[in-house]
Protein backbone atom coordinates (compact mmCIF):
# COMPACT_ATOMS: atom_id res chain seq x y z
CA UNK A 1 0.00 0.00 0.00
CA UNK A 2 1.64 3.17 -1.17
CA UNK A 3 2.31 5.66 1.58
CA UNK A 4 1.93 3.25 4.45
CA UNK A 5 4.75 2.47 6.84
CA UNK A 6 6.65 -0.62 5.83
CA UNK A 7 8.93 -2.98 7.66
CA UNK A 8 12.59 -3.16 6.74
CA UNK A 9 14.95 -5.89 7.83
CA UNK A 10 18.73 -6.08 7.53
CA UNK A 11 20.47 -9.45 7.41
CA UNK A 12 23.26 -8.24 9.66
CA UNK A 13 25.10 -11.56 9.44
CA UNK A 14 25.54 -10.89 5.74
CA UNK A 15 26.45 -7.17 6.01
CA UNK A 16 29.99 -6.40 4.81
CA UNK A 17 30.13 -2.86 6.16
CA UNK A 18 30.17 -1.06 2.81
CA UNK A 19 27.70 1.50 4.26
CA UNK A 20 26.00 1.97 0.91
CA UNK A 21 22.62 2.04 2.70
CA UNK A 22 23.72 4.70 5.18
CA UNK A 23 25.14 6.79 2.33
CA UNK A 24 22.05 6.39 0.15
CA UNK A 25 19.34 6.85 2.81
CA UNK A 26 21.04 8.30 5.92
CA UNK A 27 17.66 9.18 7.48
CA UNK A 28 16.86 5.45 7.72
CA UNK A 29 20.18 3.54 7.98
CA UNK A 30 23.28 3.89 10.12
CA UNK A 31 26.25 1.77 11.23
CA UNK A 32 26.98 0.42 14.68
CA UNK A 33 30.43 0.45 16.27
CA UNK A 34 31.25 -2.86 14.62
CA UNK A 35 30.75 -1.27 11.21
CA UNK A 36 27.53 -3.25 10.64
CA UNK A 37 24.45 -1.55 9.20
CA UNK A 38 21.46 -0.90 11.47
CA UNK A 39 18.11 0.82 11.17
CA UNK A 40 17.88 4.17 12.90
CA UNK A 41 15.36 3.72 15.70
CA UNK A 42 12.04 5.36 14.95
CA UNK A 43 12.95 6.33 11.41
CA UNK A 44 9.78 6.92 9.43
CA UNK A 45 9.77 4.72 6.37
CA UNK A 46 7.19 4.85 3.66
CA UNK A 47 6.68 2.32 0.92
CA UNK A 48 7.11 4.97 -1.73
CA UNK A 49 10.41 6.19 -0.31
CA UNK A 50 12.61 6.07 -3.39
CA UNK A 51 15.79 6.38 -1.39
CA UNK A 52 15.03 3.26 0.62
CA UNK A 53 14.45 1.39 -2.65
CA UNK A 54 17.75 2.74 -3.95
CA UNK A 55 19.50 1.64 -0.74
CA UNK A 56 18.10 -1.87 -1.22
CA UNK A 57 19.52 -1.86 -4.73
CA UNK A 58 22.82 -0.32 -3.69
CA UNK A 59 23.56 -2.96 -1.04
CA UNK A 60 26.34 -5.10 -2.57
CA UNK A 61 25.23 -8.23 -0.73
CA UNK A 62 21.47 -7.69 -0.94
CA UNK A 63 21.11 -7.77 2.81
CA UNK A 64 18.16 -5.34 3.01
CA UNK A 65 14.56 -6.44 2.56
CA UNK A 66 11.52 -4.21 2.38
CA UNK A 67 8.35 -6.02 3.41
CA UNK A 68 5.34 -4.70 1.55
CA UNK A 69 1.96 -5.89 2.69
Amino acid sequence: MTGADVAITIATDRCIGAAMCALTAPEVFTQDDEGVSRLLPGAPVRAHDGRVREAVRACPVQAITVHDD
Binding site: I16, G17, A19, A22, L23, Q31, E34, G35, V36
Partner: peptide, 15 residues
Protein backbone atom coordinates in the same frame (compact mmCIF):
# COMPACT_ATOMS: atom_id res chain seq x y z
CA UNK B 1 33.65 -13.26 5.84
CA UNK B 2 35.66 -13.98 8.99
CA UNK B 3 38.53 -11.77 7.81
CA UNK B 4 36.23 -9.02 6.59
CA UNK B 5 34.20 -8.89 9.81
CA UNK B 6 37.45 -8.54 11.73
CA UNK B 7 38.45 -5.32 9.97
CA UNK B 8 35.19 -3.55 9.06
CA UNK B 9 34.95 -1.63 12.37
CA UNK B 10 38.09 0.25 11.26
CA UNK B 11 36.42 1.43 8.08
CA UNK B 12 33.03 2.45 9.51
CA UNK B 13 31.60 5.75 8.30
CA UNK B 14 31.86 7.46 11.69
CA UNK B 15 35.47 6.34 12.01
Amino acid sequence: GRQRRMVIPGFGIRR
